[in-house]
């Protein structure tokens, strides 16, 4: 599913990375534990997280994760947006809970990593 579709079905705000909207996402991974995210071998993963700090973006950068969704209305800071822009990554701010966000993505057939 494209990043564009993800933002649409979550009724969520695209903070940066407009140029990446057509990129295809195959897998979803939800975690607040960045060490766990760093163990993934899959490509085209969207990270769904409630952890909003610089390390979330650095982790996505190192792990080649093209799209990060912040749940529960958590906001991306200027510094986070800067890292995302440098690396062509998309940040999405979603008002739904972690549970609801994941549920919607799962219902729409986004694959789990495990």
């Amino acid at each position: 599913m494209t990043i564009e579709k993800i933002a649409k079905i979550l009724d969520a705000k695209l903070v940066c990375g407009k140029q990446m909207l057509k990129q295809n996402i195959e897998y979803g991974f939800a975690s607040d534990l960045m060490s766990d995210v760093l163990t993934l071998d899959e490509e085209n993963v969207v990270l769904i997280t409630g952890l909003t700090n610089m390390q979330t973006l650095r982790t996505a950068e190192m792990a080649e994760i093209p799209c990060v969704i912040f749940v529960r209305n958590k906001k991306a800071s200027k510094e986070m947006i800067q890292i995302a822009n440098e690396n062509d990554m998309v940040i999405i701010e979603c008002k739904y809970s972690m549970f609801k966000t994941i549920g919607i993505l799962y219902e729409n057939k986004l694959e789990p990593v495990y």
């Binding site: 607040d32 534990l33 960045m34 060490s35 766990d36 995210v37 390390q55």
Partner: peptide, 15 residues
């Protein structure tokens, strides 16, 4: 709180 400290870093470095 920063998303680390689960004791997975060194094993992942080895991997």
């Amino acid at each position: 709180e920063m998303g680390f400290g689960a004791g997975m870093g060194l094993p992942n470095m080895k991997k």
